[in-house]
Nucleic acid binder design. Structure first.
Lengths: 210, 210
DNA sequence: AGGGTAAGTCACCGAACGCTGACCGGCACG
DNA sequence: CGTGCCGGTCAGCGTTCGGTGACTTACCCT
C-alpha cells in the first residue's frame, strides 16, 4: 500500500526516472492535494531518493505544475460546426466519464480543486478551464449571453465530476451512463431553445443580496 | 494583514474565545484548506495562544469538523409541496448567491472541497450534501430517476459555486443575477418535462469506458 | 482582603517538512 | 586500463508542524 509500482530495480535512466516521478506525483497530488503530499512520499513511490525531485524539477511547486498540466482538450476542436448538444455529450463522455487513471480516476481539474488554496494553482486552474474548455463552448453559441450559457454548461459537467468522484453521491455513481446522458442532454437543451420556461413565479426578492 | 480583528485586549471569557477561534478557523480553513492552515495561524487571528485550540477542541481535526459544520439548510423545508423549479430557484439564491461571509464568501461545502483529500472531510462532505440537500430534492420528484435528477440539479448548483468562487470565471461572476436565474430555470425545466429532447444523434460509443 | 479556580501563556517535544551540497558508483569512452 | 561524467544516495540543514504539561494571572466569591 506504500507504492503503486512493485519496484523492479530500474536501470539508470534519467528520462524514465523523471517520468516515474511525474506519474507518482500525479497520483499523490490528485489524491491528497499539494499540502497533503510530501516529496519523500512521491520519491518513495517512484523508487528513488527525494533529492532527485529537486534535481529534475527544481522545487515541489514546479513538479506540481508540470504534473497536473493536462495535455490538450483534443476533443471539442475537431469539427467547429457541430451543435452544442453534441459537444456537451462528447464532453460528458470524455471528460466526466473519461479514463483518468493517471490522475487517480478523476479529471486533473478536480484534483486541482483540492489544492486551490494556493494562488498559483488557482491561476493554473482558471487558465485551463477558461481557455481550454469554456472558450470553445462560447464560440459555438450565439446571442449576447453566449459566455454565460457556456459557463452554465461547464458548471453542470464540473459539478457532476465533483459529485461523482469527490462526493461519491449514490445515484450519479451508479446510474447507467445512457440514462445520465439523456438527462444531461435535456438540461443543455434548455440553453439552446428560445423561451421554453419563464422565470419561476415570484421567487426570492431578486437583485438584492441579504 | 496579520489578523482580521485589531485586537482590543479582550476580557477573559472562554465562550467568546472559543467563538473567536471558530470564526478564525472558518476563514482560514475555507481559504487555505486543512493542510494549508496551522493552528498557530488561527490562534494568532483570534489573538490567543495556540495551546487554547487543544484545550477547547482537543485537536486540529476536531476544530475543523466543528468549524465547517453548517447549521441547517433551513430553506428547502418550509413548504414540502412547492415545485422543483421553485426549489431550485430558492437554492440558487440562498446557497450559490447567499451571504457566506463567515466562510470567506463561499458556501462551506466549497471550502470542504479544498480539504477533501482527508477521508474524514470527505465523509462530512458527503453527509452534509446527500442528507442535507439532495434528499430534499429527490423527495420532491417522482419517477424512478428521482435521485439521479436530483443529483444533476445539485451538480449544476455545485458547479456554479465552484466556477464562481474558486475559478472566478468571468461571465458567471459578473452576469446579473436575474439573467443567470432565468437560464438555470430553463436547465432545471429540462429535468421536469416528459420528453422534450431525445438523446443526441449518434454520440460517442455508449456504454464503454476506454 | 484572601483564596480558589479557570483562562491564558510559555517552553518544549518529536516528527515531518522543503531543500542543499557532498559524496558514491556504474557506465562509456580514450 | 584509466578516467571523467552523470544518475543516484546520503546526511543533514533550518524551519514548522501538531500536541503536551507546567506555569502565571486575572477574575469571582466569600
Amino acid at each position: 500500500m506504500t507504492g503503486p509500482t512493485p519496484r523492479p530495480p530500474r536501470r539508470r535512466d534519467s528520462a524514465a526516472t523523471r517520468a516515474a516521478l511525474l506519474d507518482a506525483a500525479r497520483l499523490r497530488f490528485s489524491r491528497q492535494g499539494f499540502d497533503g503530499t510530501g516529496v519523500r512520499e512521491i520519491a518513495g513511490d517512484a523508487g528513488v531518493d527525494a533529492a532527485l525531485v529537486f534535481r529534475y524539477f527544481g522545487s515541489k511547486e514546479k513538479l506540481y505544475a508540470e504534473a497536473v498540466r493536462v495535455t490538450a482538450p483534443e476533443s471539442a476542436e475537431a469539427d467547429p460546426h457541430r451543435p452544442l448538444a453534441r459537444l456537451a455529450d462528447e464532453l460528458l463522455h470524455d471528460v466526466v466519464y473519461g479514463d483518468w487513471r493517471q490522475f487517480d480516476g478523476e479529471h486533473p481539474v478536480l484534483g486541482m480543486l483540492r489544492s486551490s488554496g494556493r494562488p498559483a494553482v488557482r491561476d493554473q486552474l482558471r487558465t485551463q478551464l477558461c481557455e481550454g474548455y469554456l472558450r470553445d463552448f462560447a464560440d459555438r453559441l450565439d446571442g449576447e449571453d453566449a459566455e454565460l450559457r457556456a459557463e452554465l454548461m461547464g458548471a453542470l459537467l464540473l459539478g457532476m465530476g465533483v459529485l461523482r468522484s469527490v462526493v461519491g453521491s449514490p445515484a450519479l455513481s451508479e446510474a447507467p451512463f445512457d440514462r445520465t446522458r439523456t438527462l444531461v442532454a435535456r438540461m443543455v437543451h434548455g440553453l439552446s431553445v428560445a423561451d421554453p420556461a419563464p422565470a419561476p413565479d415570484s421567487g426570492p426578492e431578486s437583485g438584492s443580496g441579504s
